[in-house]
Simulated scan of single mutants.
Amino acid sequence: MATSLRLITKDNYEAVCDLDVALEQQEYVACNLWSLVEAQFNTGYETRAIYFGENPVGFFMWVKENHEKMSIWRFMVDQKYQQKGIGRAALKLALHEIRQPPNIKQIKICYNPKNPVAKDFYSSFGFVEVGIDDDNEDMLAIIDLSNTEVQVEPCTYQ
């Protein structure tokens, strides 16, 4: 089955809100319902459901900070669908979409430095840690697109 990103609509938002991570991961992930509310009332927020075949299995939200910077604020895969390569495929698709605006020079992500998987996972996509964020809580990592040739791969998007 293929992994894809789809718009969140009145037909799938409840299923996205019902997705959850394992108990030990909950301190690392924000609530999907709250994220959807944020996106509804703020400009520059984009949300996508992660699908595996025809099943919604995860959630993304990214924010356009300015004409050169995008930040991934939310990324989760439901506990029943983890360890299947879905998160890796979904992040690849999201990065492809995030890179589409012509002026984007930087993609940022923050994660809890105590998260045992995050550093290696994100660095495998080219994110480089630059230090703890301004709130002194999360690790900030970036992909700098200004000095590199961006290679874009085909994207499954519905």
Results as ranks from 00 to 15, higher is better:
E137C: 01
I132E: 11
L145D: 05
K69W: 07
R74C: 09
Y51R: 02
N66R: 04
N55D: 12
I143P: 10
Q82A: 03
E68F: 14
N115W: 09
G44P: 12
T43F: 11
P101S: 12
G131M: 10
Q79D: 15
D135V: 00
F125G: 15
T156P: 15
V117G: 10
D133R: 05
V150I: 03
I98T: 15
Q100E: 12
V16D: 10
F75P: 06
F59L: 09
E149Q: 15
V21Y: 15
I107A: 01
K108T: 08
S35N: 06
M1Y: 04
G131E: 13
N147Q: 14
D78K: 05
T9W: 13
A30V: 00
E68R: 14
Q26S: 09
Y13A: 11
L36T: 10
T43W: 12
D78N: 07
V57Q: 14
D11T: 13
W34P: 11
G58Y: 10
L19D: 07
L145G: 06
S71P: 07
Q106D: 08
I132R: 03
D133M: 05
F125W: 11
T3A: 00
G85C: 11
W73M: 12
A22D: 11
I143H: 11
D78C: 01
G126A: 01
N115E: 09
V29M: 02
L140H: 14
I98D: 10
N112P: 00
I143L: 03
S123W: 06
E68I: 13
H96S: 15
D18Q: 14
Y51S: 02
N12H: 12
N115T: 01
V37R: 09
E65R: 08
K119H: 09
Y13Q: 15
F59P: 12
Y122T: 03
V130P: 09
F127W: 01
F59H: 15
H96K: 13
K64C: 01
D144K: 00
E27S: 15
N136M: 04
N112F: 02
E137S: 00
Q106C: 05
D135F: 04
F41A: 03
G131V: 08
F59D: 14
S35M: 05
F60T: 04
I143R: 11
N42K: 08
A94I: 04
M76Y: 05
A141S: 11
N147L: 09
S124T: 08
Q26V: 05
K108I: 07
L91N: 02
D11H: 15
V117S: 09
V117N: 10
W62Q: 12
